[in-house]
């Protein structure tokens, strides 16, 4: 039965998602790709591209995609509802605390303290996703598997992003178009 493991996994992801979409990416990836093999790293990257271009937060996009793929419509409902359930509970508890004491210093102290760890988790996600784009995966890093189209595109986009000359969505879109053209001209199979 897929539904209980979907429910459990997405409840845990929902409960421990801190630091926004990028901050929770490694948590989602480790549970969905590494632990449960519900999708591959390449597919995970596809969903990030798709999620950037469709409305809605990454967590919900991933929950809905994985839910539908593994359990059809019941799977979608189960994964997505499990994902938002912890938020409903915690928001309720924190509201009570907040309006009683008029501050959330304890919680915000912990969140501030988490910041270095969140940065580390974003770094971990970046390593995996960059290795997927450049070599087809972390375990694949070798001279023969190097993608000489992806590396220059990533570097140029990174420079443009750092100099704030381009926003993330146009950066991903233009990488898609330029990459597709180059792969097509060079006869590379996807």
């Amino acid at each position: 039965m897929i539904l209980p493991s979907l429910a459990k996994t997405f409840f845990l992801i929902g409960l421990f998602s801190f630091g926004g979409g990028y901050g929770s990416m490694e948590l989602i990836r480790s549970k969905v790709v590494t632990e449960n093999s519900w999708m591959t790293n390449a597919e995970f990257t596809d969903i990030i591209s798709i999620a950037e271009m469709t409305p809605g937060p990454l967590g919900i996009n991933i929950a809905s995609f994985v839910g539908t793929r593994t359990g059809g419509i019941p799977g979608t409902l189960c994964a997505t509802i499990s994902y938002v359930l912890p938020a409903v509970i915690v928001v309720g508890i924190l509201s009570k605390v907040y309006f009683k004491y008029r501050n959330l210093n304890g919680v915000q102290g912990v969140l501030k303290g988490l910041r270095p760890a969140v940065a580390a988790m974003v770094l971990a996600a970046a390593i995996t996703l960059t290795a997927t784009a450049w070599w087809g995966g972390v375990s694949n890093i070798a001279k023969e598997s190097t993608n000489y189209v992806a590396i220059p595109i990533s570097i140029v986009m990174l420079i443009l992003l750092r100099k704030k000359l381009i926003a993330p969505i146009p950066a991903i879109l233009s990488s898609g178009i330029i990459g597709a053209l180059l792969y097509f001209l060079l006869g590379v199979e996807a």
Partner: peptide
């Protein structure tokens, strides 16, 4: 085939976005 090539191209863009976010967050720390 076209969709697959575009998505493959986008992987390079996602990598760039992720590296960029990582740099910003680590510098902040």
């Amino acid at each position: 085939r076209i969709v697959a090539l575009v998505l493959k191209g986008m992987q390079a863009g996602v990598a760039a976005v992720m590296i960029n976010v990582t740099i910003t967050m680590c510098l902040n720390v």
